[in-house]
Design a binder for these strands. Structure first.
Length: 1155
RNA sequence: AGUCCCGUAGCUCAGUUGGUUAGAGCGCUACACUGAUAAUGUAGAGGUCCCCGGUUCAACUCCGGGCGGGACUACCA
């Protein structure tokens, strides 16, 4: 069983803890307990050596949803960076926060209560509804806190910022007042997505819920708008024989045609005047269409048809292009109203020019219905063209379609208006009809739509050129399943466009990871910025703090609770209000109690009536603000700025670092940036990592519906959070999508943590046996053996690299570098080659150096990897230090990040070891080829010298290689030796630029050089060639010459290295081999017999002729390796002996413990 | 529809200013090794570097155009 490490730290039992196995889930729990006991997180939030603060902003999650595995991803990134900065000595405060307002919460409550929006205020009071929201929003707080704790995300949850808190709202109001006083907060009438079936506007978020955009088949038509002949349009009537000229415009929503008040063309687009026939009536027509789209209406195949042969009803219709002109010529031309149901205000029916017009589809001319399209509304406003509006009986003025999605019934209209403007005869058949059949459940699904009837009506009056059904994607209300309508509504906006340039400028100073999200997705978004629609017609959210008089002439924006209190007092004085809801509020007292004496939410604020400058009543604008404003304002609001933290705000803003999913680009990232630029003319964050999605292992999006979502709790419970974190960060760069596969976690666990654990276990096992406590003075690195200096050099290189990666917010490379060092260099090479230094032998300087070196590597790795794997690394760090007292910190997270010593980095040494590894690997490969076991010693290897310095380099690592491959000697072969077969390769890098097109032939010519030519090239350093009549002079740099083969030997190549192996096994070598076989067999017997590693034994070997000589000669060696006090030959090894097989010979061996 | 990201071995990913044998790990097969042993080594099989064009002596790499996957944004008629 493992030693209870909590115990041993407090006891005097100074041993390195040894474990029976690696259970990272248990480590997770143990370390959590330890952190709690030591109050580790709180202690880690400190400023070391005046390093100052590293400001991190936590994006507030909404606690009304269950946390998913993707949250582990984002939080691992945040945590790793914050832990790293903490280790560097910075104070990293990390205030947690909760996003508590907004639509998802309201919808969740509606669902739970079984109500719809319309029921709020009737079936349930707003008070009760908001109460339910407030309660619901923290529904899963426990789960969030659990996950945060389990995964080891250090964030201060003691005093989180909560967006529904009155103090938080007060800051939001203050911010809004700043914007209001800058004149960038305004109300406007705009076209917004609206669900007639649900009776409410929809946010863009709702419109982007999965499945909202659906392909639907709608009737589309190309309408013919008759041009009014006047001076401006006269040019259209030239060179044609028809009395009328028509402009063609395509629409997918014919029901908007009665609301048409303008047409739009592109200034730069070229248009044609075409003479042809109306396909339905056969009447001759002259029509205007964009040049690029001519053939979509008039097939090219018909160009040769003769007008004289055309008969009405013919499928193929002749046409003739009469004239070409740019769109600008059409600007200002008037046309006759297409459908005369209602007459709009003066100034309608003009051709306008707009940038948004393209020639991708339709006719290159856009029908404009300002009441039903965003672009339409904008361009009409710009050119002063009136929208089609109707006056209702109640005096209100609105579009031709009512809020239920029906053409306004005549009975609903103002009588006077009907008399003056409405053509009762033509409008009556259509009045009161739904614009989409889905809005009227009494209509059969296959009944003709209003679109169809309008199209048919136009056809009968010769005003349409083409009618066809077309499939296009159209948004649907996710709640009612009915199509969305674009409808004009009132809304408050922030004029973000006024700050566009500055936002772009400041964005360029932000360090984005990955960069492309900053310049691409975010940058493009800023360039195409539109004003921020702040209004939400909902209930649970931050109310807009604006009061206006009924005639909207006077407006007041409230910026604080105390201001509100004062204004209410004034209102009470004039008798508009009886009581002040903020009566008990004490301005200046920032305590929670003081701010809980009132409520800034609806409906309480709605009941507040203020008094205007001129003494009239002012009512609050009923809207709430977009929740994204809540979260984007968190740098200010979490500090209750400027009511608190006024002086030290500079130390809290902007953030040095934030991290969230890339889906927040247009969300939190934008709102943070926008508000900071508008309020403080500053960035909100300096460095940012935006991570990609966490998909399932097949690359599909995780969803509860599909059941492929990974539960973070059980995942961490099963594996522990370290390997999950490690896997997530090292598998791929966080901004690439992660295909989450639990098999990957297992691999990380085995490969990295398993290896590291094994390495530690190995160390602990022998250190405990030898009683190594790092009590000795550090042995100077240059006094340690080559291999120790090598791993220390690599370790210092690693510290440098990992530090640079962390500094650069590149966690993936940092983790990969650490993993590579541990598995490849430390475990697989250093420990493997050094095992013999640890077991047996004297406790001498060499052994101490070995312990010190390995200790140093492990301890440094624990500090390097702690940001990513906080649990296991803390255990490792504590296990190492509790025993030795090298570091006295209570946790690795309180220890400083390692520094590297450039003097200890020896690139030559690293290169030498690389050579050693390669040569060893080649020799082992050769042994395998000729089937000679590594246990069988061999006499020698030969190495051709690839360059002058090679011999010196290899000599330094020779012993390591010889031991590793079990060979006794090395012989170097001089470069010019004739026994070598050489290979020559062209160096394209130097030759390419010089010889260009000749390169291909030259390459071939070089590769066919003979051995003699190569030798002469090598000695003279020059070679001349004739190629395609051109002289080519080659120098040594132009080619690479390697020794490829030594005829008659076993030879292997790797790049420039070549090695040959002498595979002759002499009798003497054979005896040695047999001796080694015995060592192996005896060790196995020891193990099987359950002896302790330190037990001494006695060995008797059967006096078999096959092994007799070997045992005689090497008894001492066998004994030393197996801790045998004596190794003897015996004719009868006695009872308890075992038979072992050596080279297919069976030999009896008796092993007995010395008691 | 637009913008951005991704596309390299069965899987997950590297691939450095373009340079000729495109790598690693996992998985698979075979053989070794063994007092770190739920490890390790060696070898084998496995690639049209998504496709097509262009630039170049030379393209996985640079450019253009497609295709496929994903995200975000979106009433362009």
């Amino acid at each position: 069983m493992r030693v209870n490490f909590l115990m041993h730290r407090t006891s005097m039992n100074k041993r390195f803890p040894e474990y029976k196995g690696l259970d990272l889930a248990k480590v997770n729990k143990d370390i959590l307990k330890l952190w709690d006991e030591n109050d580790a997180f709180r202690k880690s939030v400190r400023d070391l050596d005046g390093k100052g603060e590293f400001v991190f902003y936590e994006g507030p999650p909404s606690a009304n949803g269950i946390p998913g595995i993707h949250h582990v991803m984002a939080r691992t990134i945040k945590d790793a960076i914050c832990r790293y900065k903490t280790q560097c000595g910075y104070e990293v405060k990390r205030k947690a926060g909760w996003d508590t307002h907004g639509l998802p919460i309201e919808l969740g409550v509606e669902k739970a209560l079984g109500i719809t929006k319309e029921d709020i205020g009737t079936k349930i009071s707003i008070i009760d509804f908001n109460k339910a929201c407030k309660k619901d929003v923290m529904k899963y707080t426990d789960q969030w806190e659990d996950l945060t704790r389990m995964m080891g995300y250090w964030v201060n949850m003691d005093h989180p910022y909560i967006t529904y808190d009155n103090r938080y709202i007060e800051t939001l109001w203050w911010l809004l007042k700043q914007l209001h006083s800058k004149g960038v907060l305004y109300k406007d009438y705009t076209i917004q997505p609206y669900s007639p079936a649900a009776g409410s506007g929809l946010s863009s978020h709702e419109l982007n819920l999965p499945g909202c955009y659906r392909d639907v088949k709608d009737t589309t038509c190309v309408a013919l708008f008759k041009v009014v002949r006047d001076a401006r349009s006269e040019f259209l009537f030239r060179h044609t024989d028809t009395n009328d000229v028509h402009i063609m415009a395509w629409t997918t929503t014919p029901w908007t045609l009665p609301s048409n008040t303008a047409l739009a063309v592109g200034k730069e687009i070229h248009y044609l005047k075409v003479r042809s026939f109306n396909p339905y009536s056969g009447e001759p027509i002259t029509a205007v269409i964009a040049k690029d789209l001519l053939h979509s209406m008039f097939p090219e195949a018909n160009v040769g048809l003769h007008f004289s042969e055309y008969k009405p009803g013919d499928k193929k219709i002749p046409y003739k292009v009469l004239e070409e002109f740019p769109g600008i010529n059409l600007e200002g031309i008037s046309y006759e109203q297409l459908i005369d149901w209602v007459r709009p205000d003066q100034g309608a029916f003009k051709v306008l020019t707009g940038d948004f017009v393209t020639t991708e589809d339709g006719t290159g001319i856009v029908h404009i219905a300002p009441t039903f399209g965003a672009d339409d509304y904008k361009i009409a406003k710009q050119f002063g063209v009136p929208p089609m509006t109707l006056k209702r009986k109640d005096g209100s003025v609105g579009p031709m379609v009512d809020k239920k999605g029906f053409m306004v019934p005549i009975t609903d209209l103002d009588d006077q208006f009907v008399k003056e403007r409405v053509n009762i005869q033509t409008y009556t058949p259509y009045a009161g009809r739904p614009v989409k059949n889905e809005y009227d459940s009494s209509i059969a699904p296959d009944a003709d739509t209003l679109d169809v009837d309008i199209a048919v009506m136009l056809k009968q009056s010769g005003k349409v050129f083409r009618i066809e059904k077309q499939v296009h994607s159209y948004p649907h209300c996710w709640r009612t399943d009915r199509p969305v309508l674009y409808y004009p509504l009132d809304a408050w906006f922030i004029r973000t466009t006024a700050f566009r340039e500055r936002m772009i400028e400041l964005n360029n100073t932000i360090n984005w990871k990955p960069q492309s999200t900053g310049t691409g997705r975010f940058g493009k978004w800023l360039e195409n910025l539109v004003d921020w629609n702040l209004s939400r017609s909902r209930f649970w959210g931050t109310p807009l703090p604006i009061w206006v008089t009924e005639d909207r002439k006077e407006e007041k924006c409230i910026g604080s609770a105390s201001e509100l209190k004062e204004e209410i007092e004034k209102s009470i004085k004039v008798g508009f209000m009886k009581k002040n809801p903020l009566e008990k509020f004490i301005p200046g007292d920032n305590s929670q109690e003081n701010y809980e004496k009132f409520d800034l939410h609806r409906p309480f604020v709605d009941e507040i009536i203020l008094v205007s400058q001129s003494g009239r009543k002012m009512f609050r604008e009923p809207d709430l603000i977009d929740v994204w404003f809540d979260s984007g304002a968190m740098p200010y609001a979490q500090a209750h700025y400027p009511f608190e933290n006024r002086e030290n705000f500079a130390g809290m803003f902007p953030a040095d670092f934030i991290a969230e999913g890339v889906d927040q680009t247009r969300g939190w990232f934008f709102t943070l940036h926008a508000i900071a630029v508008m309020i403080s003319d500053s960035v909100a964050f300096r460095n940012i990592i935006s991570n990609g999605l966490v998909l399932d292992r097949n690359g599909n999006k995780m969803s509860k519906r599909l059941g492929n979502a990974v539960d973070p709790f059980s995942t961490i419970e099963e594996h522990g959070s370290d390997p999950v974190r490690w896997y997530m960060l090292t598998n791929s760069q966080p901004w690439d999508n992660l295909k989450f596969d639990a098999a990957g976690i297992d691999e990380v666990k085995r490969k990295f943590f398993g290896t590291l654990y094994n390495t530690y276990s190995f160390f602990a096992l022998y250190a405990n046996i030898d009683n190594f406590r790092f009590a000795e003075r550090d042995i100077l690195v240059n006094m340690r053996p080559e291999i120790d200096r090598w791993i220390i050099s690599l370790l210092n290189s690693l510290v440098k690299e990992v530090g640079e990666c962390y500094e650069n917010y590149d966690l993936t490379r940092a983790g990969r570098a650490i993993q590579d060092f541990v598995t490849e260099n430390l475990s697989n090479w250093y420990v493997r080659l050094n095992r013999k230094r640890y077991w047996g032998g004297e406790y001498d300087q060499d052994k101490i150096a070995a312990y010190q070196t390995l200790f140093q590597c492990l301890e440094t790795v624990s500090r390097l990897a702690a940001p990513i794997a906080p649990f296991y690394m803390d255990q490792l760090f504590l296990d190492l230090n509790a025993t030795t007292g090298r570091h006295t910190d209570e946790s690795v997270h309180l220890a400083v990040f390692p520094e590297y010593d450039p003097d200890l980095i020896d690139k030559d040494l690293e290169e030498r070891m690389d050579i050693a590894q390669k040569i060893s690997s080649m020799i082992l490969g050769l042994r395998r080829k000729v089937s000679i076991k590594v246990r069988q010693p061999l006499a020698k290897i030969m190495i051709p010298l690839p360059d002058k310095n090679f011999r010196t380099k290899f000599e330094a690592v020779k012993d390591l290689v010889m031991a590793e491959v079990n060979v006794k000697e090395v012989e170097y072969i001089d470069d010019t030796s004739s026994i070598l077969v050489k290979k020559i390769k062209p160096n394209f890098k130097t030759l390419g630029p010089r010889y260009g097109k000749l390169m291909k032939d030259l390459g071939n010519a070089i590769q066919v050089l003979t051995q003699a030519e190569i030798t002469s090239f090598e000695t003279s350093g020059k070679h001349l060639l004739m190629l395609n009549g051109q002289h080519v002079e080659l120098t040594r740099e132009d080619v690479e010459i390697i020794s490829e083969d030594i005829p008659g030997w076993q030879v292997a190549n790797d790049g420039r290295l070549t090695v040959a192996l002498d595979v002759t096994v002499t009798d003497e070598l054979k005896y040695e081999g047999i001796a080694r076989e015995f060592v192996n067999r005896i060790q196995n017997i020891r193990k099987e017999s359950g002896y302790d590693v330190t037990d001494k034994i006695r060995v008797q070997i059967e006096n078999h002729k096959f092994v007799r000589e070997a045992v005689k000669r090497h008894a001492g060696y066998i004994g030393s390796q197996t801790l045998a006090t004596e190794v003897t030959l015996s004719d009868n090894p006695g009872t308890g002996s075992r038979e072992v097989e050596i080279d297919e010979v069976l030999v009896k061996v008796h092993v007995g413990r010395v008691s």
